[in-house]
Nucleic acid binder design. Structure first.
Lengths: 219, 219
DNA sequence: ATCACTTTGAACCAATCGGTTAATTGCGAA
DNA sequence: TTCGCAATTAACCGATTGGTTCAAAGTGAT
């Protein structure tokens, strides 16, 4: 081997495609998982970077700093979940059936969006300061309450629902039960066993919740 | 100035009382607040120290490291809350009244123990790994379920309660609603307004929850 | 008096972490 | 071709942080 010029010790650099949107999306996806798993202070920029196809530098290149990234993750998560609340076409169902469907759907929806639930938990630990700071999140609140209002109106007109039901409070109860199911699964299972967390347990629980909610509004 | 021995730069040292238990208790109290406010990774040893009457050194002197301190905080919090679940003397009440009282009490109790709720939230973000590691916490589970069993038994004997109620599932629902009330207050208020969080809103909510739970068990 | 246990205080340390620098390379338009 | 800007990378940096060392001294039971 002669000392022939190894091309200037130039570190070979992979050629790349320019696709900033894809890079940003990649970062956001991983960041969401990391924040959901470890919280705002617990998540590590380096760890997020390692799991993306890009580098730590790019995180700060596109998203100023950690908190800005967190805020964007949060906004995107809220946006995704709201988009996921697709039309349930409850208008064609009688009030009781509509309510049952709405509750079942909420239960499953929360179950399927664990990362979102975890982000909301984390946000609550921070006193909700970041959701409060985001106009996007504050404004576009979920259509669930309006849907409920509509169902309740029809139900009371037909005389099968109580007339003193507060839609917001009803939404609160549905949310609470469906949220808690995901958010507190770990500690509840550790202390009381995983009977409720099993697939059969979840089905039984969902039925129970649906039934409980329906009963609470019947005249 | 001769180089006379300035008493060896001996810093004057305050005299003190020995009271290791008080010092430990002081640290635990502050640590609980800090962990509840900022999470495991978010809490700062220095900040905990500053708020105690002692120094950072003593934290590690008594509690090996941060995680051990966190675990002890968690255990103490569970212990305190369980001790706080004082006898409600439900035996003398008819089943419905007993259930109403138990639910009301749980609602208030959670409300009054925000730090505990926050610690449980944090623990759930960690997948419950620390509660799982603590024998103390896993074993002494709350008497709430047994109390419920007793109430349910009396209720079914009298024929006023359904016979297919699962005590654990009922406990789950009560916990869920009362827990969510505290845990998600921030984000819920930001998005839906603080109508439910106001004192009057809380009273209405509690009544609603009590009513909802009772209805769910009536035959 | 003695001796183990506490307490104090402050400096110190190694690792970690958020964030930056600087230099380079591809891209797209003139 | 050339030139300015976007994208990329690795090395670097200053601050923070959990945790320790060291040295001294008070406390209290025996």
């Amino acid at each position: 081997m002669t000392a022939e010029a190894k091309p200037k010790a130039s570190r070979q650099r992979a050629t790349w495609k320019q696709d900033p949107e894809a890079v940003k999306a990649d970062i956001l996806r991983v960041a969401r998982e990391e924040f959901a798993a470890h919280g705002l202070s617990g998540a590590r920029a380096q760890e997020i970077a390692s799991r993306t196809k890009t580098s730590k530098r790019m995180i700060f290149y596109y998203f100023k700093d950690k908190e800005s990234l967190y805020r964007e993750v949060l906004e995107q998560a809220y946006r995704d979940v709201r988009n996921g609340e697709k039309a349930l076409e409850l208008e064609n169902l009688d009030p009781v059936a509509a309510l049952r469907k709405l509750v079942s759907y909420t239960f499953d929806h929360h179950r399927q969006n664990e990362d979102f639930i975890r982000l909301v938990m984390i946000e609550n630990i921070h006193g909700g300061s970041h959701v409060a700071a985001s106009e996007t999140i504050r404004e576009g609140n979920s259509p669930a309450v309006e849907q409920l209002e509509e169902i309740l109106k029809r139900g009371t007109q037909q005389g099968i629902f109580r007339r003193d039901i507060d839609p917001l409070q009803l939404h609160w109860k549905i949310s609470g039960l469906c949220f808690f199911n995901v958010s507190n699964e770990s500690t509840f299972s550790v202390i009381f066993g995983d009977k409720i967390a099993t697939p059969e347990g979840q089905i039984a629980l969902r039925d129970d919740i649906v039934c409980t909610i329906v009963k609470s509004v019947l005249a």
